[in-house]
Amino acid sequence: MKNRNLKGLIVSVWGLLVILVPTVIFPPCSHMLELVDGGTVPMKCFWSGRAEIGIGFLILCGGLLLFFAKSAETRKFISVSTLLTSLVGIAVPAFLIGGCAMETMTCRTTTFPALYVLHALLILFCVVSFFSAGEVGSGTTKASL
């Protein structure tokens, strides 16, 4: 398999992992929050997990695009957009939506750390992928790494 195809595949698998973390591997706290009036709503971490499913899907698609993209410029663009998606993936549990206030809650002990690690590694990978995409305009990619 060509190096560049492999990179696309890795990103796709990563996207899949981002989807699997909040759904299968480390689901966030399942409790419903009880309101004063007796009604229940899911906690914040649940919504963070939901958002991550969408983010994971975007990353997965980025990986598929990377799998098929040939020109250096396109590959650089996909790397950048995937990197930014991953940043959002960190921002969502960190502050955009957030999670439980208690550090010992499942979302804070497993779900979020797992997502942070996944996104951090992916960001690193995107940086490498960006710089190893080859010369813009050459149309082909050099084997690297």
């Binding site: 706290c29 409790h31 419903m32 929050l33 009880e34 906690m43 439980c100 208690m102 010992t104 809650m105």
Partner: peptide, 10 residues
Amino acid sequence: LRAGCCSYPI
């Protein structure tokens, strides 16, 4: 049983 911040016993 539950605290306002989260449904986790404190």
